[in-house]
Write a protein that binds this DNA or RNA. Structure first.
Length: 421
DNA sequence: CTATAACTCTCAA
DNA sequence: CTAACGTTGAGAGTTATAG
């Protein structure tokens, strides 16, 4: 197997730069929902030592000193740019797995007659020119190695300029390269595993590649065994071109300010259900259980803490927003305790199955709202989500997340298109 | 006791 | 002046529970 992993460089920042060239060459961060933490950092910001996931308030001083520009995340924009990027990349191979918003695997079996390094450069060049996004390309025999190759391409290891093809290296060259890469860079090795492996003296990729997979499987897990195999060029993961339906659908959000009363919590939960149920219907599923949870701010150690979730089983699986909302609100009422500063609420739709199967409950009293839902989805699809909503969702939404530095919907909203005058 | 369900932990982007 | 810290999803492994 030969495959490429193509990954956008600090993707969200790059998307913003396409439409606002003034951001070019400047330190830029894109913040998570609620303007909380850094989720994308330009090279200039990384150079200043800002870590991934660092809270914005903690870097305020640094930001002021170095003129760091912060933007709220604009997912509508990033999703649209992602689609364009994926479309261009699909021209380079019919076998594409869209792995996340900013990266995809491309199957390259049957392309080996080409100079794959040149091919990788062609990908970079075309995505840059047609979409405006800079990407790096890693090429290797397994997904894990392709990820690693991509890392090398990004870091400019061994003089790579945005493209790294491990298949063209001798084993000696690989060993030298891998000896200089920490295990934390390996796909599937997170902070916990890193700590434990380092404790055993396994610190770099070369060391892990040469360690005994069977022993480590016994001590850790089958996941690590597979990772080791993949590092040695033995594929354990296939290219997955068809995206399977979700097994669970979640929707949760932190509030822009603390919430104390039941009423606003109910509104928020109703909104989250509406979002989740819309996704549920779009993949043609029904949910058998609804989970709802609330929590206070765990970072605020001196405040009274409360965190609880409840799973509400439905007598009959459903995709009806109104029914799912009732179930969630029933659960919320059970959970709610007055006297706490709630920071976040969320819902999950669980036990998903395919819709359209005949309803088996003879004694069902549930009203069939499927046509109402279809109309709602059509209207909201045309005019934007939230155009038509249930009364339970409310209208004021004082609790709504902060999004103070958001850029215009350049590619998705006519009314936000900046006009050249 | 076994088979499942439910829950916890880890990882990823 | 203070307080201000994401979201969504999967899979493996473990524990609780039902029969």
């Amino acid at each position: 197997m030969t495959l490429a992993l193509v990954d956008g460089n600090n993707f969200y920042v790059s998307c913003e730069r396409v439409f606002n060239p003034k951001l070019e060459g400047k330190p830029v961060v894109v913040l998570s929902n609620n303007d909380g933490c850094a989720v994308a950092r330009s090279a200039e910001v990384k150079a200043l030592g800002v870590k991934m996931g660092e809270p914005w308030f903690k870097m305020r001083d640094l930001a002021k000193k170095h003129g760091i520009l912060a933007l709220s995340s604009n997912y509508a924009l990033y999703a649209d740019m992602s689609n364009r990027m994926m479309t261009v990349l699909r021209q380079f191979s019919p076998d594409q797995e869209v792995y996340s918003i900013d990266e995809c695997f491309l199957g390259l079996d049957g392309f080996q007659h080409l100079d794959l390094i040149e091919y990788g450069h062609a990908m970079r060049q075309r995505v840059r020119q047609w979409v405006g996004i800079p990407v790096c390309v890693g090429i290797a025999e397994t997904k894990t190695l392709a990820k690693l190759a991509n890392h090398c391409a990004k870091k400019n290891h061994a003089g790579k300029e945005g493209v790294c093809d491990l298949t063209r290296m001798t084993d000696t060259e690989r060993s030298a390269l891998f000896s200089n890469i920490g295990i934390r860079e390996i796909w599937g090795v997170g902070p916990r595993l890193t700590e434990q492996l380092v404790g055993r003296g396994i610190t770099n990729v070369e060391a892990l590649r040469n360690s005994d997979a069977k022993t480590l499987r016994r001590e850790f897990s089958v996941v690590l065994e597979r990772t080791i195999a993949e590092l040695n060029g033995i594929p354990c993961m296939d290219l997955e071109e068809v995206v399977p339906n979700k097994q669970q659908i979640m929707s949760s959000r932190s509030f822009g300010q603390y919430v104390y009363d039941l009423a606003p919590l109910q509104e928020a939960v109703a909104c989250y259900i509406a979002i989740a149920a819309e996704k549920l219907r779009s993949q043609g599923s029904v949910a058998g259980m609804v989970q709802v949870y609330v929590r206070t701010n765990p970072h605020k150690a001196d405040a009274p803490q409360y965190q609880r979730g409840l799973t509400v089983p439905l007598t009959e699986a459903s995709d009806d927003t109104l029914l799912l909302t009732r179930a969630a609100l029933w659960g919320l009422k059970k959970l709610y305790r007055p006297g706490y500063a709630y920071q976040k609420a969320g819902v999950a739709l669980l036990n998903l199955s395919a819709a359209g199967a005949p309803q088996m409950d003879l004694f069902s009293t549930a009203k069939d709202n499927s046509r109402v839902m279809a109309v709602m989805d059509r209207i909201n699809g045309m005019w934007g989500r939230g155009t038509l909503h249930s009364a339970a969702e409310g209208v004021r939404h004082d609790w709504h997340m902060k999004r103070e530095k958001v850029s215009p919907g350049y590619t998705t909203r006519w009314d936000q298109l900046p006009l050249v005058t």
